[in-house]
Simulated assay, not measured.
Amino acid sequence: MASIQATLGWVSPDVRAISVDVADHDEVKVNFAVRGRTVRVEEDIEEIVGDLDAALQGQYSITPMIFVGTPDESWPGRQARLIFLEYHDSEADRFGR
């Protein structure tokens, strides 16, 4: 729940997916699939990690993992708990909306 709250307001259109994986008893990996690494994406990820760290009261080491590309089976975060996945309305995409 804390990971979802931490993303509120920080998911820009360049973020395609976010997943969370508790890798160890004291480490949380936050996986991001993005369209590209931009200043805005880097700042958004920094804010999400900071908000998550505050929500978890510093009890875990938080590691952001950034993947540029489509959040398909090749995305390393695909096997973790998915908390955000961009939505495509095929009709809207087809008509450029």
Results as ranks from 00 to 15, higher is better:
E47N: 14
S61M: 10
P76R: 06
T38R: 08
T38A: 06
F32Y: 15
E43H: 11
Q59R: 15
D24I: 06
I4T: 10
D26G: 02
T7A: 11
A23T: 12
I18S: 01
I45F: 09
S90N: 07
A92Y: 06
R35E: 06
V49N: 04
D44W: 04
V39M: 10
R97F: 10
D21I: 03
V28Y: 06
V68S: 00
V39G: 08
T7M: 14
V30I: 14
G36V: 11
F95P: 00
S61E: 13
N31E: 03
G50S: 14
L8V: 15
Y87L: 07
W10G: 04
R16D: 00
F67W: 14
E86A: 07
D21T: 04
G58K: 08
T70H: 12
R78W: 01
A33I: 04
S74P: 04
D53S: 12
R37F: 10
W10Q: 15
V39C: 03
A6E: 13
A17D: 02
D72G: 07
V34F: 00
T70M: 10
E47F: 12
V22D: 00
T7S: 11
E42P: 04
F95Y: 08
M65C: 14
E47S: 13
E91K: 11
Q59D: 15
F67G: 10
E27Q: 11
D44N: 15
V68P: 00
A23S: 12
D26H: 13
Y87C: 01
F67K: 09
G9R: 03
V68F: 03
G50D: 11
G96N: 02
I18M: 00
F95G: 01
A23G: 05
